[in-house]
Design a protein around this nucleic acid. Structure first.
Lengths: 346, 346
DNA sequence: GTGAAAGCGCTAACAG
DNA sequence: CTGTTAGCGCTTTCAC
């Protein structure tokens, strides 16, 4: 970008550069850019041409600083590489983009990355709101957003302290167990996956327990795929298989876990579905492939994203009016998609 | 946040609020926050306490506006829901976060979302640099970033006009064809997937053609899974299967396409690998499941992300020194992972 | 060690 | 219709 003194401008053109080149004032430029006030046709053209010539783009930093609000939202996700969260994040990004918001996405890569730090970062960026697909439960996070009056919405995360849009996980677990019980299974294990968010994990566990009780079935074991996670009350897969009374069905907390479980079962020579049945949760697209054929509980991904973003936008709009409106919880209905990894109890 | 006049403060606390509460000046607060100048122990403590009390977070907008540079990068991705890009994006976000940058992620959801618009948006946000995992080839994009001196790096995208870090796609295609040729296949089809980025698609097509020639094999058909994409020179799967001389092997441009292809083959009663072999590209984790067992060309995802981000940081550091340094291209070696979807030609 | 002052680029009254 | 002005919250010399 050449300047009148012949030197190259440092950095990008500013509104002043445009004003100078077109011989008008900053305000007029601002008016043609935003259409906030009527501008004479001839003036507008001159300004537009100057903008074109200089490759001018308004500086969002300056605009937002002045306006005291940004058109940016923060998105916190536990694992983008998990296809379920990949799809959900994509869908969320689409909705926010449509609403004119840029999305700063933060993945929680390890224990070193805490949601608390991510939220602090997002606050510094003055995001208009935050969508959480992962929440560790830290009260400081709640405190931080509350005092700053930054709306926060849990998507596929349930916490009574903020608005949430979730699948009815307990019900999802229940319909999975119903399906298995109808097939005659008596010993149904639960397989929590570490790829699942904590509150979600708990709700599905709860749903599994209740459904077993409802069907008057003994509670099956909680089987973990992760050797080092020696959580009490849990047993490893080998132990489960070697027991006197091994499970004939496994309900996994999500599809990636179900898929890894089936792989281990295949490896161990346990036939699915002849010997044991497996049902997953999420219904990621891979589950639908013939060779996979995973029976799964489908979550309405698109709705989750749409309602989560809608709620966030609502909160953003009302933040000055009623920042302390009570938290709302929306639970969407899941659907069982029976496929070929479940069959009659042997 | 209570103010001295008893009212609630609007919005977040500023550096001035902190200064007032601790009885010092803005500069001193700034100094304790950044350690940019020595501050007396007692003063520092007072300031720190005020910060704590007010829940003060520096406003990144104001800081960046003043500094004339942000700690934000833009990431443009074609399809986050594709597991390959999910993994790659996750890995990239991790690297940028480690380097202290926030990532604004833009997915190209449809033809209505152009990379050009996304780049314009990112420029307005004054991102320090852009990572492109999708590029439509629009010259305006190049022009836009060039004149604004915003570094841009293609990751898994190849274009001579900017720095790129890619897998050697032609070589990947070649080793896939080599594998098939060794198994005795003579008629090898190419299956482009619309989930693959254009330059990548072209490179793999090129590699396939060359390898066939090298093996002195006739060029097989280009088979499309997408009925409406009646690109000339392409045939539908049904047509391919019904031909006098059907392919005995298919090389798909990526794993999701390969997986969908196998599903269609299964549906049509064509056995894989007994009747035909299929090899994919990317080696997403699903490919490794026993029930899937997809032979695939592995891309070094972690390296792609690491080198891409490294290169971007380098460019950002040098942007004032040498903004016009020539574009560099790094090609990483792919590896063939043979599994069970490929076998000897019948 | 600490404070005062000058902007960064922009918007939004308010005059003219 | 168009220009002037006063900041948004922060960093960064430069005095004291």
């Amino acid at each position: 970008v050449a300047r009148s003194d012949g030197t190259e401008r440092q950095g990008a053109a500013t509104i002043i550069d445009v004003a100078r080149l077109s011989g008008v004032s900053k305000s007029t430029v601002s008016n043609v850019v935003h259409g906030s006030a009527p501008v004479a046709q001839r003036t507008r053209e001159k300004v537009l041409q100057a903008i074109e010539e200089l490759g001018y783009r308004p500086n969002a930093l300056a605009r937002d600083l002045k306006r005291r609000r940004t058109a940016t939202v923060g998105v916190v996700v536990g694992d983008l590489a998990n296809p379920f969260f990949g799809e959900l994040t994509k869908s969320i990004e689409q909705r926010t983009a449509e609403a004119g918001y840029a999305a700063i996405i933060c993945d929680i890569h390890s224990a070193a990355d805490t949601d608390r730090e991510k939220v602090a970062l997002l606050r510094e960026q003055r995001v208009a709101g935050i969508l959480m697909m992962y929440f560790g439960g830290d009260a400081m996070v709640i405190e931080e957003v509350r005092r700053a009056a930054v709306p926060i919405i849990g998507v596929s995360v349930l916490d009574s302290r903020f608005d949430c849009v979730v699948t009815d996980d307990a019900k999802g677990a229940a319909i999975a167990v119903d399906h298995l019980a109808e097939l005659g299974h008596q010993r149904i294990a639960y397989v929590p996956g570490d790829a699942t968010e904590a509150s979600t994990l708990a709700a599905r566990l709860q749903g599994w327990k209740r459904a077993l009780r409802r069907h008057k079935l003994r509670r099956g074991p909680i089987v973990t795929m992760n050797e080092h996670s020696a959580i009490k009350g849990t047993i490893g897969l080998e132990t489960a298989l070697a027991s006197d009374d091994p499970p004939t069905a496994y309900f996994a907390s999500n599809d990636t876990t179900a898929l890894r479980l089936i792989d281990r079962l295949d490896e161990a020579g346990v036939r699915v579905p002849q010997d044991v049945s497996v049902v997953g949760f999420d219904d990621i697209w891979i589950a639908g492939l013939r060779r996979v054929g995973l029976t799964s509980v489908r979550q309405p991904v698109g709705e989750l994203a749409a309602l989560g973003v809608e709620r966030l936008l609502l909160r953003i709009a009302q933040v000055d009016v009623d920042p302390d409106a009570p938290a709302t919880q929306q639970k969407l209905a899941p659907t069982l998609i029976p496929r070929t990894t479940t069959g009659p109890a042997g």
